[in-house]
Computed example of a mutant assay.
Amino acid sequence: AITSLSYFFLQVALNILFVAILKFGANGVLLSLVISNTVAIVWMLFDLGKHHLFCFCINKQLLREALHYSIPIIPHNLSTHIAQFVSRVFINANTSLVSVGLFGLASKFGSLADMVQNSVNMAFQPWFFEQLSKREALDTKQIVSLSNSLVWLYGIVFLGLALFSQELIALMATDAYQSSWMLVPLIVAVFAIKTPYYFYINILFYYKKAAKYIFIATVSSSLLNVFLSYFFIKAWGMFGSVAADAIAMLLRVGIVVYLANKFSKIGYSLVRFGLHFLFLLLCMVVGLYPSYVQGNASVSIGACLYKIGVLIVFCIIALWANKGSVGGTLAILRKRR
Rank of each mutant, 00 (worst) to 15 (best):
L138A: 03
F232I: 01
A248P: 06
A217I: 13
I156G: 01
F232M: 02
L132C: 09
N121V: 11
K234G: 02
E167L: 08
V219K: 09
N202R: 06
F164C: 09
K209N: 13
A162E: 05
V120T: 10
S179P: 05
T174Q: 14
V120I: 12
I156Y: 02
I247T: 10
L146T: 10
N202W: 02
N121I: 13
A123W: 04
K209Q: 12
F158M: 04
K141E: 12
Q117H: 11
L228A: 10
Q131D: 07
V157S: 08
N202C: 07
N225L: 10
D175Q: 12
L161T: 01
F124L: 10
Y200F: 15
Y197I: 01
Y206S: 06
Q142K: 09
Q131K: 15
F239V: 14
F227K: 05
K234F: 01
N118A: 14
Y177S: 09
P196W: 00
V157A: 07
D245V: 00
N121E: 14
N148A: 02
I216C: 10
L159W: 00
V190M: 04
F231C: 07
M115A: 09
I214V: 12
N202S: 07
Y154G: 00
Q131E: 14
M238S: 14
F232D: 00
F109D: 08
A217S: 15
V184R: 03
Q131N: 12
F215T: 11
F128C: 01
V190T: 07
S133E: 14
L132G: 08
Y230R: 11
W236R: 14
A113L: 03
K234M: 05
A173N: 09
A170G: 12
